[in-house]
Simulated assay, not measured.
Amino acid sequence: MIRAGSDILGDRSRVAGVTRVAAIDCGTNTIRLLVADLEGGQAREVVRTGLITRLGQGVDRTGELDADALTRTLSATREFAGIIESEGAQQVRFVATSATRDARNRDEFVLGVREALGVEPEVVSGVVEAGLSFTGAVSAVSRAHPGPYLVVDLGGGSTEVVLGTDAPEYAVSLDIGSVRLHERHLVSDPPTQAEIDAATVDVREALRRAEAEVPLHETATLVGVAGTITTTTAHALRLPGYQRERIDGAELPVGIAMAAAQDLLAATRRERAALPYLHPGRVDVIGAGALIWFEVIARVLAETTAAGSGIRHVVTSEHDILDGIALSLGASA
């Protein structure tokens, strides 16, 4: 668990003008919690933690949430409930995304969360997910980089692509993610060229659909969020471990970012497992996620170059949908 600022902040939840909130993002591969103090339209982190439970295990193939995956995820939810209570959060919002959207038996999951946490989980659409990711990412990067921002939230089951400056203007959710693409195509260790080619076809087709809805050529700053991208950034930086403070806000030349993605895709699972910044729960799927990120950068580079600008760097943010969920609680207060 990462705990940020608890000793310094003390019980700010009782200070006038400060609202302590808890945000939970339950995705295909991870479930994460942010407890934050909202003040003046900003979210000040108190606790940020997450667990890889792979709720979306097999959903692409079966259309249902796996029983063991449900057990793991509900156990994590109960653990988070204890943290939320101990930190004194006044409002809680639980958002479930791709895997839950796609599952026929999601009612079983919703009931389990309600019993564990005492709140109704929201199974949000891909467009809502994209908007929350945009809000969270731009809340951090807008001070240092110009808009319009193309925020790419690369998850386990889906990838959200959203463009805007002060607010989302165009958004699309694509059914490509690290877990989904891995289970469909990249089953060998390391993946064969035929598997990579088949996966690439899927990704490029999805990005063609994205272009029809989001004007990628208008991008001034490409921002990547979520575990695949933060891990790929750590790989590009050759960090001695997962150092969130160095990953957050990192600005990489496009060639360096793309080379790091290609390297992870080509690596064996043993080679990946030896990397000090790669969580064990991502070892099998990071190659698929890296392929998606490579193709996204390549497509945005091509579109912006054709428009006469051409992105030169990509920005990584540790602020994402979790921060967007937390900030939404302030907006609704």
Rank of each mutant, 00 (worst) to 15 (best):
L117E: 01
R14W: 10
G131S: 11
D68T: 11
A273N: 14
S158P: 12
A36N: 10
G308M: 14
P280L: 11
G157M: 12
P240W: 06
E120K: 11
Q193A: 13
A274Y: 02
L132K: 02
A298D: 15
D284L: 09
E213W: 01
P280D: 07
H279C: 09
N105V: 02
T28D: 00
G136Q: 00
D175Q: 13
V46N: 02
L265I: 11
Q91A: 15
P240E: 05
G281L: 01
E205W: 10
R272E: 09
T62R: 02
G5Y: 11
G281A: 03
P191I: 02
R246C: 04
T159K: 00
L216W: 00
R20Q: 08
V18A: 12
R93Y: 05
R272C: 08
T159W: 03
G118P: 06
I229M: 15
I247A: 06
V59G: 02
C26H: 01
P240A: 05
E245D: 15
G147Q: 04
R20N: 02
L38Y: 00
A69T: 04
V141D: 04
V141E: 06
A43I: 03
A331V: 14
A198S: 13
E271T: 10
R72E: 02
A76R: 00
V141I: 13
I24A: 08
I52D: 12
S188Q: 06
A266T: 08
F94L: 03
A89Q: 02
A144V: 13
D66A: 06
G310N: 07
D197V: 13
S173T: 10
R78I: 11
R14D: 05
I196M: 12
Q262C: 12
F134C: 11
V15T: 14
G136E: 02
Q57C: 10
G255T: 05
M1T: 07
A333T: 12
A290L: 01
I292M: 09
D248T: 09
L117F: 07
R269I: 02
D323C: 03
S332H: 13
T53Y: 00
I311D: 00
T135L: 13
H145P: 08
R209W: 08
V300T: 03
I24W: 07
G82E: 14
V138C: 07
V35T: 11
R104W: 04
E108K: 04
G5D: 14
E129G: 04
V214S: 00
I196R: 14
D323R: 13
L55W: 01
L264S: 06
I247V: 15
L70Y: 07
L239W: 08
G241Q: 13
I8D: 14
E160T: 09
V187L: 15
V315N: 03
L70K: 03
I31L: 08
S139I: 09
V124W: 01
A210E: 01
E218A: 15
L55A: 06
P215C: 11
A89W: 00
H185M: 01
I286G: 05
R246Q: 15
V225L: 02
N105E: 13
A236K: 04
E79C: 08
